[in-house]
Amino acid sequence: MYYKQIDKKSWLCVGDGPRNPVTGQRKQISRRGKSKKEAETKVLDAIKKSEKNFSFDEKITFDEFSNVWLENYLFRGNKDSTIDHRKYCISTINNYMAKVQINKINTLLYQNFLNQLMTEGSSLSTIKGINNVAQMIFKYAKEVGLIDNNPTESSFIPKPKLEIKDIQEDRVEKLFLNSDELKIFIEEVERYKSPVIRTLLYILTFTGMRPGEAISLYKDDIDFNNATIRINKTTYRMNRIKGEFKLTPPKTLGSIRIIEVDQFILKMIKEMQHFQHIYKYVESEFLFSMNDGFPTTIDYLRTVVRRIGEKTNISKQLHTYMLRHTHVSLLAEAGVDLTYIMNRVGHRNSKTTTEIYLHVTKGMRENAQVKMHKKFSALLNLDKNEINVSKM
């Protein structure tokens, strides 16, 4: 250590930092303090930090560091779709702070970024996803000694002000089709020209599969004798191009399952396969192959559902996952318990599934209460909820 008194009120201390693992050279670290001891303490703290962070330049920008984080993240064994989502989140953050030194990003700067996302119309789920990725990146930056404070720890997810109309509208009700709406939807599905797409939409509605799971089904995943379907894969579409895809394991291990299906679904599948044979569809292992032998894309299926919805008088905005949610509501209406429903749709725990289940069963309980009251009133000869005391 080298010490030098600058003046009566300050000291300079200089020490050798750790060797650069690539060049082998040391970098001198100097700090000032009000006393010799304070200057020395600052140098020792800086050396300790440098030893922990010898591979990063303290001036590294967010985009440079996030690239390093992503390179390491690729070795965690995550699905391609998950990695693509991480890349999307990083690119969004880069739009705001790519060239800002990561150690210059404080809570105020980061909070302003989140607020701007909301102001520009990003959905709550999108903001949460981006914030989740940012948390991982800044946590890593703190672990390697680039930053002392993680700006995401003191920030919050902005939410729009609750309006009266938001209170009056039933959010859960928008997640699925009720019985009357489902009948209207099915009537329009029946008019769709492609039997492959028709059958696929029935599968989504009456099995609760995820769209990616359904279009990934092989022919031998169907067991006609036992009336079951095996679900053990999903489709990752590269570049959103129909022929460019690969099969991957499903979302979670709990998503690997065998489910029972109704005979009318099996009959539809057989009729669809007969159609594929008659019209000489290219031979394919995929159950829902189109005439070129490839299954349709999730994007196309999403467009079909939206267009079908536009042809009806259903006020809700239809999407593919609404059919999955509708299946949950149908099972809840039928009195099926929540655990079975979770297993059937491949969920260990799902807030959305639970909300739909509780919403539907609450209505059933209220309906049961009315029926019980009528029954008890008839048995006890009650009039307007009061016992006729004159007969007592």
Score class of each variant (00 low, 15 high):
283 E>W: 09
293 G>V: 00
281 Y>H: 14
287 L>P: 03
302 R>S: 15
297 T>W: 07
283 E>K: 15
283 E>T: 13
283 E>Y: 12
282 V>H: 12
300 Y>I: 00
284 S>K: 13
296 T>W: 03
286 F>D: 00
285 E>C: 05
298 I>E: 12
289 S>L: 05
300 Y>C: 01
292 D>S: 10
285 E>K: 15
292 D>H: 11
292 D>G: 06
280 K>W: 08
306 R>H: 15
291 N>C: 05
306 R>I: 04
280 K>Y: 13
289 S>I: 00
282 V>N: 13
305 V>T: 08
279 Y>K: 14
288 F>H: 01
281 Y>G: 05
287 L>F: 10
292 D>P: 05
284 S>M: 09
292 D>N: 13
279 Y>P: 08
303 T>A: 13
285 E>F: 05
296 T>R: 02
304 V>S: 07
301 L>F: 13
288 F>K: 03
287 L>S: 03
293 G>C: 04
302 R>M: 02
307 R>C: 06
289 S>Y: 05
295 P>Q: 09
298 I>L: 11
297 T>L: 03
293 G>I: 04
285 E>L: 12
304 V>I: 15
294 F>V: 00
281 Y>I: 00
283 E>N: 14
304 V>N: 11
288 F>E: 02
284 S>F: 10
308 I>H: 08
279 Y>A: 00
294 F>N: 11
299 D>G: 07
305 V>I: 12
296 T>P: 02
282 V>P: 00
298 I>M: 07
296 T>H: 02
303 T>W: 13
308 I>K: 09
305 V>W: 11
279 Y>V: 04
302 R>G: 11
302 R>F: 08
279 Y>E: 09
290 M>N: 11
293 G>E: 03
292 D>K: 13
286 F>K: 06
297 T>N: 05
280 K>V: 06
308 I>C: 06
308 I>P: 09
302 R>P: 01
285 E>A: 07
291 N>I: 05
303 T>Q: 14
288 F>T: 01
282 V>Q: 15
304 V>W: 08
289 S>M: 06
303 T>F: 14
293 G>K: 11
284 S>T: 08
291 N>R: 12
287 L>W: 03
305 V>H: 12
295 P>C: 07
295 P>M: 01
283 E>S: 14
306 R>W: 12
304 V>D: 05
284 S>Y: 10
297 T>A: 08
281 Y>Q: 04
